[in-house]
Computed example of a mutant assay.
Amino acid sequence: MQVRQLSLKGRALRLLGGREHSRAELERKLAPHEQEPGQLQRVLDELQAKGFICEERVMESVLNRRAAKLGAGRIRQELMEKGLGAELVGQAMQQLRGTELERAREVWRRKFGEIPQDAAERARQARFLASRGFGGEVIRRILAGGADEE
């Protein structure tokens, strides 16, 4: 039985069928399969012109999938790793800013649910929230307890 090699375009479409990918992600993933110089750029240009690659959709996809669990810091990092431009990353951060405290409080509530009783527990909860990408001021307000409820 003969195994047929997927074309670069076929590989790109298969990746895009799974989830949204940025152009930079596709370049990284498909570069090892490029058989002639410039081939990958031509394929990606064609897919972008036809609307298969859209940086705004990548941003929205990340926000929809990750915002309920992660803070703006971690999401910013993910978007930058995906190769999105500074303007789009800034736009995403603007969208997240208004809900950061509420989202962090929900993540904290699901994991812990009660105010820490000692310094060690407080530090553990703070580390958890920081590892999720929430900022210091947000963490402080959550661990301060009910007095800060909005």
Score class of each variant (00 low, 15 high):
94 Q>M: 10
21 H>Y: 15
26 L>K: 01
5 Q>R: 14
32 P>D: 13
56 E>R: 15
53 I>M: 09
10 G>L: 11
34 E>L: 05
9 K>D: 07
63 L>V: 05
81 E>D: 11
74 R>Y: 09
102 E>C: 00
95 Q>L: 11
82 K>Y: 10
99 T>Q: 15
101 L>I: 04
51 G>M: 12
19 R>W: 12
18 G>W: 13
22 S>L: 06
52 F>H: 15
61 S>I: 00
74 R>G: 02
77 Q>A: 13
83 G>S: 04
102 E>Y: 06
5 Q>L: 14
51 G>W: 14
82 K>L: 14
87 E>N: 05
52 F>D: 04
91 Q>F: 09
75 I>C: 06
43 V>R: 05
44 L>T: 00
59 M>D: 02
34 E>M: 05
99 T>I: 12
6 L>Q: 10
48 Q>S: 15
15 L>S: 08
31 A>Q: 10
102 E>H: 07
21 H>V: 00
70 L>D: 09
79 L>Q: 03
100 E>H: 08
56 E>Y: 14
81 E>C: 00
105 R>M: 07
21 H>R: 11
81 E>L: 13
92 A>C: 03
70 L>H: 12
75 I>W: 06
68 A>G: 15
29 K>R: 15
5 Q>K: 13
26 L>M: 02
63 L>M: 06
66 R>N: 06
7 S>G: 10
45 D>F: 08
7 S>T: 14
21 H>P: 00
51 G>D: 06
31 A>C: 02
27 E>C: 00
49 A>I: 04
20 E>N: 10
48 Q>D: 10
